[in-house]
């Protein structure tokens, strides 16, 4: 009995320890963004006096001042948003659809060469994208396609990592008898895939959609190399301009510029967060 009591005490102490660590890490996740948002509404002079503040005494006035700094400077977050949106949305749709289709072709059909394709997918998964970069740039340069968003979109049709993931998922969830019965009902193979197999894959698609969208949205390396035309800049490139010397003394504006690019992501995350954390869990069990 006494022993049990001691055990209980220990576990309460341990639980408090767990909470303390978790809260510290939660603060660590939030603090940089909090400082950023508050400083976006503070003047450069105030920030120089005290770089951290819980709130700003004149938020709207300062916000307008910080915003005015961008006038006449090449800072166009809206262009970045539009371009990033076009690229990320197209990449996500193409990658999801064609990866599912490829995974289905390996999983549901017997054909010569499918074993080779399967092995190839495992192999090329390990090739980092940057290894292809010089050759890819030279190829795109030769056909005069730099500064074309398509060049960042079309390659998504072949996403070996995702095919691998989708195949793992299909292995566990697709029974060929469903496909057979669709055939008996006279559905074409293509229609069977679109109307029966794709809906079956929804959970896997949801997880991969989020991962793909985030990584495409945040990608800096490839766009930085391919896009030199300012009207084609993606959001990360636009953000990178904030590092320039013209903003060296404009602290408030730098924070504001960063906040503008973060705010939409955080809003979307608030709505999708539950789904993201659980969706990942769902994908993981199958993968």
């Amino acid at each position: 009995m006494a022993n049990e009591n001691k055990l209980h005490k220990e576990s309460v102490g341990f639980k408090i320890f767990e909470y303390v660590i978790c809260v510290i890490f939660a603060i660590l996740s939030l603090a940089p963004f909090y400082i950023m948002f508050v400083n976006a509404t503070r003047g450069t002079y105030e920030i120089q006096q005290h770089a951290i503040s819980l709130f700003s005494p004149h938020p709207f006035q300062n916000l307008a001042k910080n915003w005015a700094v961008f006038n006449g400077k090449d800072f166009h977050p809206e262009t970045g948003f539009v371009n990033s949106f076009i690229i990320s949305t197209s990449v996500t749709i193409l990658a999801l659809y064609f990866s599912s289709l490829t995974a289905y072709s390996i999983q549901a059909y017997e054909w010569k060469g499918k074993k080779i394709l399967n092995g190839l997918i495992m192999g090329i998964m390990m090739i980092p994208g940057t290894v292809t970069m010089i050759g890819f740039y030279q190829m795109v340069y030769k056909i005069h396609m730099t500064n074309r968003l398509e060049m960042l979109i079309i390659p998504a049709i072949a996403s070996p990592m995702m095919v691998y993931f989708m195949k793992q998922y299909l292995e566990g969830s697709l029974s060929l008898s469903i496909v057979e019965s669709a055939r008996i009902d006279g559905a074409s193979e293509f229609r069977t895939f679109n109307q029966i197999v794709l809906p079956l894959m929804k959970p896997a698609i949801a997880t991969q959609a989020i991962f793909t969208y985030v990584s495409s949205w945040n990608n800096l390396f490839m766009p930085l190399i391919l896009l030199t035309d300012k009207s084609k800049y993606t959001l990360p490139i636009v953000v990178s301009l904030l590092k320039g010397d013209i903003y060296k003394t404009e602290y408030g504006s730098v924070y504001l510029g960063l906040s503008i690019t973060v705010l939409p992501l955080i809003v979307v995350y608030i709505f999708l967060s539950k789904y993201i954390v659980e969706g990942v869990a769902l994908g993981g069990t199958k993968g």
Binding site: S29, L30, V214, L235, L265
Partner: peptide, 10 residues
């Protein structure tokens, strides 16, 4: 998980 979704350039 939050920091992971924010653009790394930012």
């Amino acid at each position: 998980y939050l920091p992971n979704i924010i653009t790394s350039a930012t």
